[in-house]
Design a binder for these strands. Structure first.
Lengths: 114, 114
DNA sequence: AATGAATATATGATTATTCGCATATTTAGC
DNA sequence: GCTAAATATGCGAATAATCATATATTCATT
């Protein structure tokens, strides 16, 4: 029960769109990982992630001092497909962020498939 | 070469999203058809369509006194798929508009497939 | 319990979008 | 050429979204 208008409003911001696409690709990311990937301030990242969480697009999971965000399991299939297609077809939009992305837990950075 | 952020900004407005989805479904629509379908003023519809045209998402074609808008032929495949999926998966969002839609040329109103 | 790192939120200022209204433009029919 | 219908645009007002800064919270470490 996610209204398409609310969904696209959530995507209509550079910080939120890049965060969402990176999370779609990497399964889950924490605030500080997105801070360095997008080179944005902590309150800015946190605020936008909170917005996506309130819209039921993301879920969060606390692990010690970190809070990891991932796609909400109840996200409609069509929304999921929209994110996947946008990710695959717009690698150049995301490339600079992925390059700056370093994961705090040491796990490897996922590469776009294909 | 349509930036995903610009594309989603274009979808992040009720008037524009409904117009785009209706056009995706009906192939092409003119301003006055969208006015009645969405129950909005002429300048409002016209202004939003102009915005979509400037973003290279729509193209326009004049036929007598009417200007018909359709999806731009150079619209990237991923954007096209996003529109199609959004349309198919959100019939209830569009239903009231489609119900009020009457075509000036007398051609039949397309129904959502499936 | 004190400190520091990571995250969240409150708030006022700034900026971007949208709107309504008035008016201009284009075309068809007379 | 005049009028009416359809469409487009200019402009200031209203609304919404975003931002930076400051501060609060939570947890691990000592």
């Amino acid at each position: 029960m996610l209204n398409p208008l609310l969904f696209y409003k959530a995507l209509a911001d550079d910080t939120r769109l890049k965060s969402l696409l990176l999370i779609t690709e990497q399964q889950e990311l924490c605030v500080c990982e997105l801070m360095t990937a997008l080179d944005q301030s902590q309150p800015k990242i946190s605020r936008h992630l909170a917005q996506l969480r309130k819209a039921n697009i993301l879920q969060d999971r606390r692990s010690g001092q970190w809070v990891f965000y991932s796609l909400h399991p109840a996200l409609p299939a069509w929304a999921n497909q929209v994110l996947q297609q946008t990710l695959l077809a717009n690698q150049s939009y995301l490339a600079p962020c992925r390059q700056q992305l370093t994961l705090v837990s040491g796990r490897p950075v996922e590469q776009a498939c294909c």
